[in-house]
Computed example of a mutant assay.
Amino acid sequence: MLEITKNYVMDENQQLIAIQISIADFEKIEEILENYGLIQLMQESEDNERLSKDEGWKYYQSLKQKNVES
């Protein structure tokens, strides 16, 4: 299981307003989410045609790039 070290940020009334995590933890979470998204894309391919891991990754990266551009 992923161990995430969190730093809590509170306002002047001691109300929790944010949580900080390290870049390394963020990158781990991002990788897990990307892998999950890749699996979903591979399962949802048209005509029930399965994508290979490399094909799925390339397709996912193209979608990710389109998102960045818009």
Rank of each mutant, 00 (worst) to 15 (best):
K66A: 15
S52R: 04
L51R: 14
E30D: 09
I21T: 03
E31W: 07
L63F: 11
G37R: 06
E55M: 09
Q14W: 05
K64I: 00
G56E: 02
I32R: 11
R50C: 07
E27Q: 15
K64F: 13
E12V: 03
L63E: 12
D54T: 10
F26T: 00
D47A: 14
G37K: 07
Y36Q: 12
K28Q: 05
A18T: 05
K58V: 11
S45T: 11
G56K: 09
L16V: 01
Q15N: 11
N48S: 09
Y59H: 14
K66I: 10
I32A: 06
K66E: 14
S52W: 01
E30H: 10
S62Y: 06
E49L: 14
K64S: 05
N67K: 15
S52L: 04
R50M: 11
I39Q: 13
I19R: 04
N35L: 13
K53N: 12
D47S: 15
D25Q: 01
S52E: 04
D54V: 11
K64C: 03
D11H: 05
L63I: 11
G37V: 01
A24D: 07
I29P: 02
L16T: 01
S45L: 07
Y36E: 08
I32S: 05
L51F: 15
N13W: 02
I32T: 10
S52C: 07
S45G: 13
F26Q: 10
L33A: 04
G56Y: 10
G56M: 05
E49D: 08
K66S: 14
E55Q: 15
K58S: 10
Q20D: 07
E55K: 13
S22N: 04
Q43A: 13
N35I: 10
I32D: 01
Q14L: 03
Q65H: 11
Q15C: 08
N35F: 08
I17H: 05
Q20P: 00
M10R: 14
L63S: 05
S45F: 14
V9Q: 04
E31K: 13
I29V: 11
E49G: 04
R50W: 09
I23F: 06
Y36H: 12
Y59P: 01
L41I: 13
Q43D: 11
V68D: 05
L41N: 05
K64P: 01
K64L: 13
K66Y: 07
Y60V: 00
S45Y: 14
V68E: 09
E46V: 12
I17G: 04
E27A: 08
Q40R: 06
E30G: 04
I32E: 02
E31M: 13
I29D: 01
A18Q: 03
R50D: 02
K64N: 06
R50P: 08
S52Y: 01
